[in-house]
Each structure stands twice: as C-alpha cells, then as structure tokens.
C-alpha cells in the first residue's frame, strides 16, 4: 500500500456528487446497505430460522411420542388433557430461543456503531440523528417481522407431516394457530425493538444482549420462583414483556391473568417506552 500512487487532487467533474439532499429514504437505504454488508447478519438470521424449525420438528415428534405412551396408560392420558392447543403452538414453539438470537442481532445494529467508531461517520452524515434511529427502527421492525413470518411458516411446513404421522392434525387456518402465528410475529418484533433500544442506550453489544436475556429469561424465572412467597410478585410478573406476549398468543385467558386488551397494552408499552427513551438519549448524549 505504501507504494500505491495517489492521484493529483483535482476538483470533481461538475455534478459528480449530484445535488441530492439528506432524506429519510436515503438514510433508510444506507442502513439496509450497512445491515446486509455484514456476514453476521445473515448468520444470525439463518440461525433464528434453523432454531425455530428445529424446535417445531422436535416438539411435533415429542407430542406424537407422548400420545403413543398415553394410549397405553389411561391415567397418563387423563393428566395430559387436550393436545389440540399444544399442537397449534408447534410452529411458534422455538420462539423462546429464536427471540434471543434475533434480539442480539437487533442490539448489535445499534451497539456496533459505537463499538467500532462507525457512529462518527454515521452521525456526521446525519447530524440530526433522529432519522438514523427511526430508519434503524423501521428496518429492524421489517426484518424481524419477515424473519419471524418465514420461520413460523417453515416450522409449520416441517411440523405438519411429523404431527400427521401421529394422527395429530395441524390446521393452518385454525384460530389457535393463526393467533399464535401473528402474535408470535408481533412478539419477535417487540423483542427486536427492545434489543435495538438497549443497544442505543448502553452502546455496548455484550451489555445489551445480557440485559435483553435477563429481561426475557432470568427475570421471569426468578420472579416465578419467588411468586409463591409474595402475591404482588405474581401480579407484577404479568407486566413482563414475555409474559404479556405469551398470554396474548393464547386463545384462553389464564386464571388471574390480565385481559387481552391489557396484554396488548403491555406489549405496546414495551415497544414504545424503550424506543422513545433511546431516541431521547441518542439526541442528548455526545457521540
């Protein structure tokens, strides 16, 4: 490189740089170029889909196997109850793990800007800052919705014949499956947007991912474990994003749970509040 020749400086040909202004569609296009230029993006998207499909296949096989066992012992059959809802939930059964993968991807969309110093280039080009934040939000929303839809559909396609082999019927148009699918997509979008907001607030990939995992794994487990000791803990738990999201996916209300419209509000709040907080902090803090 040290021998590479630098050309004599010359002024650009008239109009070589065009005359375009800074615009939101331009910023969005820039974000998509950056997003898909990283190898990690495709790896994490593929990992999300693989995990979803694998869980659906494994789940279908497990349900079928336990049905076979139940046929031999009537007591066990009685304890299992109706398998219809469990079957309908098969295509979304991998969400608990897949959410963390795509959530981590969403954290890094923001945090990597700061970790690598790319934020300097980004925010010199877009000094108003907000267009970058909302372009990333829109992009993450679109990408996570598409990835969730594709992986749920693929999971359905893989789980249906396996379940069919055990005489379990997986009906695409059933109310339970339709609800699980569309709320499942919304759920993934929520996780991703919380992840992106965490990335913007903490500016650190590891920190953002740890907090995201704590929010969706550790906190529900810990609160669930102690909820027997304190009634208010069980009540507070209903406002965690994964609890509200999971409840929203069910057709039947759990006893003591929130109304569905309340669950919807909780999910909406978990999307809006972190995003607004992150947008405000991004505007105020130095890059």
């Amino acid at each position: 490189m040290s021998t590479a020749t630098m050309k004599r400086p010359r002024s650009a040909a008239p109009g070589a740089a065009g005359s375009g202004k800074l615009s939101f569609p331009g910023v969005l296009r820039g974000e998509f170029i950056k997003f898909f230029s990283l190898p990690s993006t495709m790896i994490l998207i593929l990992a999300t889909i693989v995990v979803m499909v694998a869980f659906a296949a494994l789940g279908a096989w497990l349900i079928g196997w336990s049905m076979g066992m139940a046929a031999e012992s009537p007591e066990m059959a009685a304890s299992m109850g109706d398998m219809g809802e469990a079957t309908a939930a098969l295509p979304t059964s991998g969400l608990a793990f897949a959410q963390l993968i795509i959530g981590a991807l969403a954290v890094m969309v923001m945090s990597s800007e700061f970790a690598t110093g790319a934020a300097r280039s980004t925010f010199v080009a877009v000094p108003t800052r907000q267009p970058v934040f909302w372009a990333k939000t829109l992009m993450i929303g679109i990408v996570s919705a598409v990835v969730a839809t594709v992986s749920i559909l693929l999971s359905f396609a893989v789980a249906k014949p396996i379940a069919g082999a055990y005489d379990l019927e997986l009906v695409f148009s059933s109310e339970a499956l339709q609800r699980a699918m569309w709320v499942g997509v919304l759920y993934v979008v929520m996780v991703s947007l919380i992840g992106m907001a965490l990335g913007a607030l903490l500016r650190n990939s590891a920190g953002g991912i740890v907090v995201l995992a704590a929010l969706f794994f550790v906190l529900p487990l810990a609160m669930g474990g102690f909820s027997a000791l304190a009634d208010w803990l069980a009540k507070a738990m209903r406002f965690l994003p994964d609890q509200a999201g999971a409840a929203l996916m069910q057709l039947q209300l759990a006893p003591g749970g929130l109304e569905q419209w309340q669950n919807g509000l909780v999910v909406a709040a978990w999307i809006v509040i972190p995003l607004v907080a992150a947008a405000v902090v991004l505007q105020r803090r130095d890059i």
């Binding site: 070589a16 740089a17 065009g18 375009g20 202004k21 800074l22 615009s23 331009g26 910023v27 296009r29 820039g30 974000e31 170029i33 950056k34 230029s37 990283l38 190898p39 990690s40 990597s112 800007e113 690598t116 110093g117 790319a118 934020a119 300097r120 280039s121 980004t122 080009a125 877009v126």
Partner: peptide, 23 residues
C-alpha cells in the same frame, strides 16, 4: 477507522452516499 471492521471500504462509502443520494 470510523468504520465497522467487517465492512469493505466501498460499502462504507456507498452507505454514507445513500443518505444524500450521492451516485
């Protein structure tokens, strides 16, 4: 090096150019 390490120089420039519709 105000750039993501895994990105190429050309992609970095193109992403920045896109914000202002620079060809």
């Amino acid at each position: 090096k105000s750039v993501h390490k895994s990105r190429s120089a050309r992609t970095h420039l193109r992403a920045l150019a896109a914000t202002h519709s620079i060809p």
